[in-house]
Computed example of a mutant assay.
Amino acid sequence: MQKDDGGLMNYLYYLLVAVPVAVYLELTHASPLLIFVFSSLAIIPLAGLMGKSTEELAIVAGPRVGGLLNATFGNATELIITIFALKEGLFDVVKASIAGSILGNILLVLGFAAFLGGIKNKTLQFNYQIANLNTSLLFLVVVALIIPAMFYHAGDLDSAEAQTLSLITAILLITIYVTSLYFSFKSHRHLFHTSHNVLEKAEWNKYVSLAVLAGSVVLVALMSEFLVGSLEHMVQQVGVSEIFIGFILIPIIGNAAEHSTAVLMAIKNRMDLALEIAVGSSTQIALMITPLLVFISYLFGKPMHLIFHQLELTGIALAVLVVNFAIRDGETNYLEGLILLFTYVILGTAFYFV
C-alpha cells in the first residue's frame, strides 16, 4: 500500500472494532453466520495494517530488501486463511480461493482500475515490460495447471501419480518465481524502472513497523481460524457452495485494502503501480502461494494435488488470454476495463451455480 491512500486506510481502521466482536461471538458459540461475517470484516483492516507496516519496513530497509518483503507479505493474509482451510481438509475451498484470487486480481481489480482510471485520464500508459513478463508467467501457470488435470480427467493418471505430478509442478512453479524475482530485481532491473520509484520517508520507525506487522499477523491468524471454523456451518445456513465462498469472498476479504490501492493509483494516472499490484499479485499467488500450499499440505498429512475443477481451469485460461490482449500494447482505457469486469461477472455467476 502506498502513502497517498492514507485517507482510505483511516476509514478501514474503523473496522478494527470487528476484532473483539468476532472474539466474543466465537467464545459465546454464536451463530456461524455472525462469526463468519465479523471475522471477515476484521481481516480487512488487519490486512491493511500488514501492508502498511511492510511498506514502512521496505522504505527503511532499502529497495532490495523492500522488494523481498513485499514479495513475502504481499499475499500473506490470504495464505494464512487458506492454510487454516488446508488444515481442515477443505481442498475445494483452497483451490477455489487460488483461482478466485488470480481471476479477481487480473479481471476485477485491473478491470476497475482501468475503467475508473480510464474515465478520468482517457488513456492509461504503463511499462509494457512489466506487463509482458507477468502475462508470460501467467501463461506458464495455465500450462502447469491444465496438464495435470487433463491427464487425470482422461484417466491416464491415478491419484498417486497425480499427487506426484502436482508436487513436481509445485517445485517448478516456485523455482520460476524465484528466478523471475532475480530477473526483475537484479539481472534485468533496468527494464522495470517506473516513474513511481522515488525516495520516500518512512512514517514509522522499524520497531513500530515490526510490532504492528507481528500483531497483525497473529490477529489475522486468529480471525482466519474463526472464519474457517464457521465456514461449513455457515454454508449450510445460507445455502451457497464452499467453492463460491472460496472463489468470491475469501480473495476479496484478504486483499480488499490492496485492491482499493490499485484503483486509486489508476485514477491518479499511476497505472504502472496499479498493474504491479493487480497482475503482479496474481502472478505471486500462482507461482508462490500455490506451491507453498502444496508443500504445507504434506505437513498436515493431507497432501493436496493441483487437479482443479474444469470451470476453474477454463476461467483462469480465458482470463489470462483476455488480460494479455488488454495490456500487451503498454496502454489501456475504460472500455478494456469494462471488458475485464464483465468477464469476471460472467465467471462469478457461473461459480454461483456450481
Rank of each mutant, 00 (worst) to 15 (best):
346 I>F: 11
330 G>D: 08
322 V>E: 05
349 T>W: 12
348 G>Q: 03
325 F>S: 12
341 L>M: 08
347 L>E: 06
331 E>Q: 15
322 V>T: 08
347 L>W: 00
319 A>Q: 04
346 I>D: 01
317 A>W: 04
342 F>Q: 03
325 F>K: 04
328 R>P: 10
324 N>L: 08
349 T>F: 04
336 E>H: 12
346 I>M: 07
342 F>P: 07
343 T>S: 12
342 F>R: 04
315 G>K: 03
342 F>S: 07
323 V>G: 08
341 L>Q: 00
317 A>L: 07
331 E>N: 14
333 N>H: 13
324 N>K: 14
339 I>M: 09
315 G>F: 01
326 A>V: 08
322 V>P: 08
340 L>V: 04
339 I>G: 09
340 L>K: 01
347 L>K: 02
329 D>H: 15
339 I>H: 05
318 L>K: 01
319 A>R: 00
335 L>T: 01
331 E>L: 12
336 E>D: 13
331 E>F: 15
335 L>K: 06
347 L>Y: 02
328 R>G: 13
326 A>D: 06
334 Y>M: 03
332 T>A: 09
319 A>I: 03
337 G>S: 03
336 E>L: 10
334 Y>I: 06
327 I>G: 13
320 V>N: 12
323 V>M: 06
315 G>N: 00
333 N>F: 13
324 N>V: 07
340 L>A: 04
329 D>Y: 11
321 L>V: 12
347 L>A: 02
323 V>E: 05
349 T>N: 14
346 I>W: 09
317 A>K: 02
341 L>H: 00
346 I>T: 11
318 L>W: 04
337 G>P: 09
348 G>V: 02
344 Y>N: 07
347 L>C: 01
346 I>Y: 09
321 L>Q: 07
317 A>D: 02
315 G>C: 04
344 Y>H: 05
336 E>Q: 11
345 V>N: 06
327 I>Q: 12
343 T>R: 12
340 L>Q: 00
330 G>I: 10
